[in-house]
């Protein structure tokens, strides 16, 4: 019975520890999911992420084909390669899901996000905010004597950078749409 000789206090791994031969590095992926635009479809997608413990960094959804009742959901998520593969396979199982594209691996893609930033202040700070907005090609969509609302479009990094610059200049509120993404080329 040597094979059954169990070492006392052996430092075993959990059977639920899903470590495997895949890389353990955390990757960021952008997924585009085309779904039937029907009641509850977003809840199915979100429920999948919460129920199985996946991350959602950003999620956008809107109807893209009114006649065909199709919506496109863009999800930015992070996880190990094995988790990302699971997320795609699990999304593919949902009945109203038609297509799952991993834009991060399927060739080059463009990602854009829109943000609205309210900056309040006066004097030199106000001038500086306008100057930076110009550099970032943000436009002013609302203005009072003591505030601006800037609209900016770009990658999430660009919006992060703009928001960081606005913070000391009186940033009071920010609204972001989340990422919309498409593959490049035809």
């Amino acid at each position: 019975m040597a094979a059954l000789n169990i070492k006392k206090g052996s430092n075993s791994h959990s059977a639920y520890n899903l470590r495997s031969n895949f890389s353990d590095a955390i990757e960021k992926h952008t997924l585009a999911v085309v779904v039937d635009n029907e009641a509850g479809v977003l809840a199915r997608v979100i429920g999948l992420f919460s129920g199985r413990g996946y991350n959602i960094d950003s999620l956008t959804v809107a109807e893209i084909d009114h006649a065909g009742h199709r919506s496109r959901i863009t999800i930015c998520t992070t996880g190990t390669p094995q988790t990302i593969e699971q997320i795609k396979a699990q999304l593919g199982r949902i009945v109203p899901v038609h297509e799952v594209h991993d834009l991060t691996v399927e060739g080059p893609s463009v990602e854009r996000e829109l943000a609205l930033l309210k900056v309040a202040g006066d004097g030199e700070k106000r001038v500086e905010a306008l100057r930076l907005a110009d550099i970032f090609r943000a436009s002013v969509v609302d203005s009072t004597l003591k505030s601006f609302v800037f609209e900016i479009t770009g990658t999430p990094d660009k919006i992060d950078a703009f928001a960081d610059l606005m913070r000391p200049l009186g940033l009071v509120e920010i609204a972001r749409t989340g990422v919309a993404a498409l593959s490049r080329g035809s």
Binding site: M1, L4, K8, G9
Partner: peptide, 23 residues
């Protein structure tokens, strides 16, 4: 036992002493 591989089976009560670790 939980957390053990296939080749560490318990076959009877005599094998069970301390068979399951903290993990």
């Amino acid at each position: 036992p939980s957390g053990k591989p296939h080749n560490e089976m318990l076959l009877g009560d005599a094998d069970t002493q301390g068979a399951i670790g903290a993990k």
